[in-house]
Nucleic acid binder design. Structure first.
Length: 196
DNA sequence: CCCATGATGCCCT
DNA sequence: GGGCATCATGGGT
């Protein structure tokens, strides 16, 4: 398991380092593993796309001002949850949004969580769209509001390094933040490019 | 494949 | 009351 010091760094470094790592999700004696392939960094002090732009503390953003290595889970568009990992020391407001992953273990349970259907009943389109978005990922991993503030050094949600490194990390502009003026152009989105 | 649209509720002003 | 770090769907190409 990655320890708290992993998260106690600039969100842009953590965002890149999380690519290729494994999220482990445990509940009800079940286990799910996925490999992260897309992240985005958010740094409140300088980032108009951050929920806490200008270091503004509200009930919702409070968790991001706390110590590193905890989740920030928020509700969006009345329907979906998105999960971030809080980075940097207490008092600094930054986080990494987990935007996408690929299945590693217990794809059957992920399929049931997402579609209420067994994996062998899924269409190609549904398989492709299992984990490729922040809302989809939370749905497949059974993560919602109650997991806001979860300790990533606990046993419900944590990250492992299995040594996989056969890829490079591509940097690009973040998605769906057109309102964020100059922050639109920050290259704070990180995606896995496999060596194939 | 692409694009446009509606769903739906919480947050913050 | 406006807007949102999204997604599924449906129709056109």
């Amino acid at each position: 398991m990655l320890d708290r010091s992993f998260y106690d760094r600039d969100a842009r470094i953590v965002g890149q380092d999380l690519i290729g790592k494994i999220i482990v999700r445990r509940y009800d004696d079940k286990i799910i593993k996925v490999r992260i392939n897309e992240t985005e960094a958010y740094i409140a002090e300088i980032d108009k796309a951050s929920h806490a732009y200008g270091n503004k503390i509200t009930p919702r953003t409070k968790i991001m001002f706390g110590p590193p290595g905890f989740t920030y889970v928020y509700f969006i568009y009345g329907m979906y949850y998105c999960m971030n990992f809080v980075t940097e020391k207490e008092g600094t407001c930054s986080a990494v949004l987990i935007r996408g992953a690929e299945p590693v273990e217990n794809i059957e349970l992920m399929s049931l969580n997402r579609y209420k259907k067994s994996y062998n009943e899924l269409s190609k389109y549904q398989i492709k769209n299992l984990l490729n978005g922040p809302g989809k990922l939370c749905n497949a991993l059974n993560i919602s509001k109650e997991h806001n503030g979860n300790d990533l050094t606990g046993n419900e949600i944590y990250v492992e390094d299995d040594g996989f490194s056969d890829f490079i990390v591509e940097k690009s502009k973040r998605i769906n933040i057109d309102y964020a003026e100059e922050a639109r152009d920050f290259l704070w989105r990180y995606t896995m490019l496999k060596n194939s």
